[in-house]
Simulated assay, not measured.
Amino acid sequence: MRTLKLYIVLAFCLTAVSARAQTTNYQVYALFVMNIAKYSSWPSPDGELRITVFGKSKAYDELLKHNGKNVNGHLVKVTQVENAADIGQPHVLYLADGKSGSLDEIIKATHGKPVMIITEREGLYKKGAGFSFVVMDNSTLRFDINNTDLEKRSIKVSKSLSALANTMI
């Protein structure tokens, strides 16, 4: 039943709402982040699901709409930072497109920690991010997964979520 719900939510996102390069729909990005978090698990979770946006992105405003909501028994707490030193201990780190050049710094700052890195820029899953968004030719938003990185960080992603990936390593 849970798998069916996941397919319905993500199928809606993939078909009903498009993310165009010129007019990016950050509401869809935020919805994907929330569903990725919902179908993932971290070691030793506490009472919060901390999502930190690194850099300026309109996705932050959309993620704020989920602040205080419950995901798998955890209250969502959304913050935004501009410096790697201010990251803290998030469960999800959303890397804004304008800060994509900071990926190596982010990977070093979170090395050995159960932090899922999700990037707006396509292809960064090949460089160590757990997820990268990709806008398809038909303008739908999809994601690529780096399971190797997620496993190193002790983060588990449901098989049904992995099955929806555009590309997976």
Rank of each mutant, 00 (worst) to 15 (best):
L49P: 02
M34Q: 08
E105P: 09
H74P: 05
R2A: 14
I51E: 09
G130F: 05
V81Q: 03
D97T: 12
V78F: 05
L95R: 06
I155N: 01
K159R: 14
A21V: 14
L14P: 00
V9D: 14
T110V: 12
K69F: 07
L75V: 14
T3E: 15
G112W: 03
A21D: 14
K127E: 12
I155T: 09
V17Y: 07
K127T: 12
L31W: 07
P45H: 08
H91F: 08
R20P: 00
S102E: 15
D104W: 04
Y29Q: 07
L103K: 07
M1I: 10
V135W: 06
T24H: 09
P45F: 11
L161W: 04
A109Q: 08
D97I: 10
F133P: 08
H111I: 13
R153M: 02
I106T: 04
E82K: 14
I36Q: 04
M34A: 11
F32I: 00
M116A: 08
T119M: 05
K108T: 06
I145N: 01
G47A: 07
S158F: 05
Y60P: 00
T15Q: 11
L164E: 02
S40M: 08
Y60A: 12
R142Q: 12
A109M: 06
L103D: 02
V53I: 00
N166P: 00
A30E: 02
Y125I: 09
P45W: 08
I107T: 10
W42I: 05
Y94N: 06
Q80H: 03
W42T: 01
K99V: 00
G68T: 00
S154T: 13
I106S: 06
A59W: 00
N166C: 05
N147A: 15
G98N: 14
M116K: 00
E48G: 02
R2T: 14
P43W: 02
F143H: 03
F54K: 01
M168H: 02
M1G: 13
P45D: 11
S162C: 13
S158M: 06
D97V: 11
S57I: 01
S57C: 05
T52P: 08
Q80E: 12
A85S: 12
D46R: 11
L95K: 03
M34Y: 09
E62Q: 14
F131A: 08
S132Q: 05
G47N: 14
G73M: 05
I8F: 12
V33R: 02
R121G: 07
H66M: 11
L64S: 04
I118K: 01
V92M: 09
P45A: 05
